[in-house]
Amino acid sequence: MEALVELERVKKHFVIRDGILGRRRRFVHAVDDVSLSIVRGETFGIVGESGSGKTTIARIIPRLVNVTSGSVKFSGIDICRASGRELMLARRRMGIVFQDPASSLNPRVTVAASIQRPLQLAGLPAKEARDRVREVAELVNLGTEVLDKFPHELSGGQQQRASIARAIVLRPEFVILDEPTSALDVSVQAQVLNLLLDLQQRFSLTYLFISHNLPVVRYLCDRIAVMYLGKLVELASTGVLYREPLHPYSLALLMAAPPPDPKMRNRRRFILTGDPPSLTNPPQGCRLHPRCQFAVERCRVEEPELRDYGSGHLAACHRIGDLDLGFAM
């Protein structure tokens, strides 16, 4: 298994200045010491609440934001230290699709122009580029009549398909999908997801799929990373995570999604209370302890490490040996 993307001990801190003349500085630990690797050909999911740092990871990989420390490798290229040209070439091998389809396309130009732009930047002659745009539009089921329209004239689903077309027009190996369906209607969501699966098979793409929609993640992903407050708390293959989650936070996330079978509504619940604490001042010890019903004294003082519990199933919790979270599943 060849790793296409490798994050090693990546940290991203944003500085907030306030007080007189911005002299008081606080740090937001958006991503705190995350290591993971995405294998070529797989769909890697990242789930977590808002503010867990999942979108920041999506923006770190193409270096839309710089890391504070740690390293990011994309097919062997050190993204954080790449020169302008190397970075540009590496970026051409990735595509990115954002959450909000309405603002993902330049409102001033037609859909065709937006999709064609990456080809222009790569130096393709105009005629070939136009043919390629039509080809890609067909792949994502965008009619030719849509191509000459402006983004605001399209439906949300069409806009998102246009964004996907722009992301794959350069035939990248790797596509970052930052909550690509969460702004869409359920029926359109299904269309877009199936389109993504279809494209993945056709072009053997590697996906990084970021979402808070667990059924969708389960449907699409091979492996899932669970994040909480900038930390990776659990990483496992999809089947394993759903069958036997090790971390209480993963369990809580899984339980929060309504079961597909209404008869199961009365199952036992494990639900977190309260809101996630502030990112500028995360709790000591395990970051989940104020919201975790299993927390003991050790959780309050000592930060748990990410450990391997067999066949690549990683989790960071002190109480894994004592608990059997399988009760709920």
Binding site: L64, R91, M94, I96, F98, S103, S104, L105
Partner: peptide, 13 residues
């Protein structure tokens, strides 16, 4: 900070 500008940066503009 709109996504379409981010997308442009990711494309290497």
């Amino acid at each position: 900070n709109m996504p379409f500008v981010e997308a442009a940066r990711a494309l290497g503009e």
